[in-house]
Design a protein around this nucleic acid. Structure first.
Lengths: 158, 158
DNA sequence: CTAATCGGTACTGGATTAGTACTATTTATG
DNA sequence: CATAAATAGTACTAATCCAGTACCGATTAG
């Protein structure tokens, strides 16, 4: 399972809430209540998003967070990147990765970056505006409980 | 950071090795030596890949593993899916995810599946054959140590 | 002034994962 | 036929990482 942290998971949910709020600031507590998420966690996430420039914050009474950009200009990649750092699927890209091969560079390291690039592009093509539309009740489920039926390569037919 | 397990990481490296072996079977020990990876780990991964139908195994002396399909027909999604189960970025898609919202369905659950789909498509577009070409020494690094310069949305210019 | 709210840091418990150990099974080869 | 080489399977352990908590400081509306 390719995984993002729960922080990024919640982050997208929260951003979607704020997108629906139409620029009106919402407090961390209000969002936590609305989504039934633990307040400290929500607070932490919103802080990170604000620091990354995706949200603008207003301190003091009646303060709160609101989107710093139109929802259409914010992508899933932006949100995930803000909360998890650079979008990279392995630590391979970091300089000290020596257990991998005796050569200076792992032979396929270049291809990792290609994979990263592909994922990044995919995530960037999804805007917050799209995600915050409360449309489709629950479309086709992408993965089934048993992977063999969907993803697996044994049957291979994609 | 979007992450795959190290198992999948190694898995791709090993598959790339086998792709370069041109159908000739390689033993787990040989591959472990070649890549300086712990043998038990390599063994475990190869077993999983074989069970998923991506590799065929030959027992006994002079045995080993070899690709069950042409490298061009195997995608990164196949390998990762075989080692990590279905490609899903959150557990949101599983039935019992109730901490998220008081409603039966999380408002953006449908969009998670869209994100999954996008990533899956991206991973599937990358074939093992592409990855096993030992070309480009080290192309443009996708992410920099400081995310602000590449991914981040504060500067936003993507 | 006071209450509400954001901002930052450090800590802890728990889940997940990497890695190991051991044994059974299969098969080429002398 | 005997032996050695290799895969197959399973259970276990140790370490890492992450979610979540707690606490206090800074800012601002009323």
């Amino acid at each position: 399972m390719i995984r993002i942290t729960r922080e990024a998971d919640y982050g997208i949910v929260l951003m979607a809430c704020l997108a629906q709020a139409e620029g009106q600031p919402r407090s961390a507590a209000a969002l936590a209540r609305q989504r039934r998420l633990p307040l400290p966690m929500v607070s932490k996430i919103l802080k990170s998003l604000a620091r990354a420039g995706l949200l603008s914050s207003q301190r003091g009474a009646q303060g709160g967070y609101s989107l710093a950009w139109p929802a259409a200009k914010i992508s899933a990649a932006d949100i995930i990147g803000a909360l998890e750092g650079p979008i990279a699927i392995t630590e391979c890209s970091d300089e000290t990765h020596d257990g991998c091969s005796r050569q200076d560079h792992c032979e396929i390291s270049g291809h990792w970056s290609r994979i990263n690039q592909a994922i990044y592009t995919a995530l960037q093509s999804i805007s917050l505006e799209e995600m915050s539309r409360p449309d489709q009740p629950r479309p086709v489920r992408f993965h089934s409980p048993h992977r063999v039926t969907t993803v697996n390569a044994a049957g291979h037919p994609v």
